[in-house]
């Protein structure tokens, strides 16, 4: 079911330790980087409460650069909250959240954009700009990342073509189906080649073929060195490739290991 890209993903997961693969690919960067830069995500005793209801309970987590991680668990387990903490849409009630070597929960508002430019987020509710076309949604993000207009257009067209959306590039988001909107959101997250990709239920609106194509794409990006964290409760997706899987239940990690074993 999984095509070429995902096979590379499996190879990279099984045959070569991720960190070694990253060092081989970007030796200068890796050798210069300190310990914190190796761990792209680090959570220390993180708790999150809403109205005295504990969503996350003293969570500890460590994700190395270049890892591919599935985050799963029943609805309300805290998957989305965990991701929101990582891209600093929320602050933890207690504990420390480190992303790309920076303590996110203590970042000033002016520093947040710099962090978020390193993260590509695929939102569950897409969060597309409704007044902009598909192409503009992507070029807009590339432009705020400092990409020149012509280059932004080229890269946006490229990523849309890859996601099979080139024929819909002039459409407004409201004119797209749920699956198409999902793919635009994915295209936007991938267009600026972030070091960390956080995907919240990315296959929720996709059929099986598109879901496997998306997974293939994420594996490909992971192969190129990016860290990928996918929150999902899609069992087919979890079974499709062996990857580090975190099972969240009642705000705590109940399982952390390779799945399928």
């Amino acid at each position: 079911m999984i095509q070429f890209g995902s096979r590379r993903c499996i190879e990279s997961q099984r045959l070569l330790p991720r960190r070694i693969l990253s060092i081989v690919r970007r030796p200068g960067l890796r050798l210069l980087a300190g310990r914190t830069s190796r761990s792209v995500i680090r959570l220390r005793a993180v708790s999150k409460e809403y109205d005295h209801r504990k969503i996350l309970r003293s969570l500890d987590l460590h994700v190395d650069g270049g890892e591919f991680v599935f985050l799963t668990g029943p609805s309300g387990a805290g998957k989305t909250t965990l991701l929101r903490l990582l891209y600093a849409a929320e602050k933890p009630s207690s504990g420390e959240v480190w992303v790309a070597g920076r303590r996110v929960d203590e970042l000033s508002r002016s520093r947040l954009p710099l962090l978020r430019r390193k993260i590509g987020v695929i939102f569950q509710d897409f969060k597309l700009l409704k007044r902009k076309t598909v192409l503009e949604n992507i070029t807009f993000v590339l432009r705020i990342h400092g990409v020149a207009p012509r280059e932004a257009l080229r890269r946006a067209s490229q990523v849309l073509k890859r996601l099979g959306l080139q024929h819909r590039q002039s459409a407004l988001p409201d004119a797209l189906s749920g699956g198409e909107q999902q793919r635009v959101a994915i295209a936007r997250a991938l267009a600026y080649q972030p070091r960390l990709i956080l995907a919240d239920e990315p296959t929720g609106n996709l059929d099986a073929d598109l879901a496997s194509e998306l997974l293939s794409l994420l594996c490909d990006i992971n192969y190129q060195g990016a860290t990928v964290v996918v929150a999902t409760h899609d069992h087919a997706l979890l079974e499709s490739i062996p990857a580090r899987t975190l099972v969240l239940h009642d705000g705590q990690i109940h399982f952390d290991g390779m799945w399928p074993p």
């Binding site: 891209y87 849409a89 508002r109 002016s110 947040l112 954009p113 710099l114 962090l115 978020r116 430019r117 993260i119 987020v121 939102f123 969060k127 597309l128 700009l129 409704k130 007044r131 993000v141 705020i144 990342h145 936007r188």
Partner: peptide, 16 residues
Amino acid sequence: GDEITIMRLVGATEGT
């Protein structure tokens, strides 16, 4: 408001 929120989430600075 939604657009502004999305812009912030994708890394736009307050100036942008």
